[in-house]
Design a protein around this nucleic acid. Sequence first.
DNA 1: GCGCCTTGTGTGACCGGTCACATTCATGCC
DNA 2: GGCATGAATGTGACCGGTCACACAAGGCGC
Lengths: 330, 330
Amino acid sequence: MATAAGVSYQTVSRVINGHPSVRPSTREQVLAAIDELGFRRNATALALASGRRRAVTVLTSNTTHHGYASILQGVEEAARTASYAVGIGVLESAEDTAVAAGVQRAADAGGGIIVIAYDPAGVRALAAVPAGLPVVGVVETPASPPGGDRPWVWADDREAAYQATRHLLDLGHETVHYVAIPSGTRRTSARTSGWRQALREAGAPEPRPVQSSWGPAGGHAAGRKLAEDRSVTAILCGNDDLALGVLRALHETGRAVPGEVSVAGFDDAPHSAFLTPSLTTVRLDFAGLGRAAFALLHGVLEESAPVAPHPVSVPELVVRESSGPPPPDA
Amino acid sequence: MATAAGVSYQTVSRVINGHPSVRPSTREQVLAAIDELGFRRNATALALASGRRRAVTVLTSNTTHHGYASILQGVEEAARTASYAVGIGVLESAEDTAVAAGVQRAADAGGGIIVIAYDPAGVRALAAVPAGLPVVGVVETPASPPGGDRPWVWADDREAAYQATRHLLDLGHETVHYVAIPSGTRRTSARTSGWRQALREAGAPEPRPVQSSWGPAGGHAAGRKLAEDRSVTAILCGNDDLALGVLRALHETGRAVPGEVSVAGFDDAPHSAFLTPSLTTVRLDFAGLGRAAFALLHGVLEESAPVAPHPVSVPELVVRESSGPPPPDA
DNA sequence: GCGCCTTGTGTGACCGGTCACATTCATGCC
DNA sequence: GGCATGAATGTGACCGGTCACACAAGGCGC
């Protein structure tokens, strides 16, 4: 474009990049030509020449889970505002080769990487990102995970679990059972430890957490098991999908919610408010988390970018119909 | 890398691209060097030089809806297999400027574009893609929409709606009311017309569809309205989220499902099987749709790629608890 | 034994930008 | 008036590859 329309060639570059020493009249000429020809600078060439890619790749094991999808949406929103392209890589499994392949792909894409490190695949991927690459992890627990020294953002899952458990205990339940999502690390998950802390503080017995999966099917299985135990009056679930399965299992076994058993979830998925009974849960701002992750990464990539101390979104307990006092005879 | 390790420079390129005339011994040398140095060809440089980007950008108005997220996951899966990078662009709204900006971003990314054109924003985006750019639309209705001549894939929504409506009519309902998702086009949506066709064939009265939104809140509002009308005994919803809201509204107004009113959804979202009552719905293979979209785009981008006549996934009716015969006195 | 075709490899230009440096020109100061 | 100074612009190299050639060596036919 340059030469033909305006007068020079490098000057175009200067105009685009807002270089100060360009005569106003020249600038306008170039601008006019740009406008007329509908010129857009080639992102690929720019990336090659400058070495920077203005792109971020989100690495995750799944795009359909509510939390993950919301984080992705948050990242995209922030990236769009900053004129960054957003790429996505799905980790096929937690196997080393699959994880390595995923990281490779993200690295090949150039730009920064955001890893959703809530589950085993994500945690391993975060750890597998070669040092030196700009990366931010969205983690459950901040205390140096395997991919330790990397910057991260998090929602305070521990606090959230604590709040939900407290809520149930305050209603008068003797203790609260916990159906856990798969943990990303070998160590106790933040959610589990928040739950445990609340129990300890209340001097309540600590039942063994029921390990489950991510989806409602897992919750259903766990719920069937817990339903057998008549002493169970309160169940906290690692996420709302799990809670849905538990609710269903309780229904099938004829246990009333919240009459006999109270159930609380985690995440406040969009459908949770409309279940019957509607689900008591803890709202987590995943989209905000995604935005924060991008902001942090942006700061890593460009020192000029705002490096706001990443705002830990405060979880908010949402009390609905699925929780209530324990039955009088319990 | 080249020169240092092996012997030449261009030869490396030949080896990588599997050019036939390279002496086996040379090839092995180069291969060894590549392996040793952990060399990976720079995707950016490749894109610049070759003009092709081996990437696909998915343009959508939302990443969190079940169907959309599943399509994205399907695209990613197929793209991963073909060593394509996957980008994502979210359309902020259906406003012309927002749509144009989204399309620009996708175009700037290079490579191909897949537009999820189920809603107004998506439909407009598909239409706004400049001719000549490789694009595939995931559409609701194939018959030349505004972005007419562009290749597309679809699930047979019409047939799906027809099946669901038939199912309810076969149970003995006099007619079936319909809660509609926002249509992408001004014309009647495929789902609506499938529903209508079933009614006509059965000689059933055709109530006016209730226009709603995408989420459960919209379904809830629609459900409240329909619940007032005691003659309503069967409701088909444009998607499972809507159905969830309807279910909730019916519960709130004391109408039994399926005792008094039957409800059917659309999509078979993961939670639908676990609702109480579990939801009768039509399963659509969104992930498969995403894979098909990519395959088609791949064919457009590389003539060598398999151009399988895109497999229209057949919708499958899943009958669960939420549908049953109408009450005897209706 | 010579020309010719085929095979393997190297060279130079180019993709569309950025960067470091050279150049031109007007200005201000002594 | 001569000269350093800074603003405005142009030039050449380069980012890391691909592509269209040129070119050397070996095998074949006559």
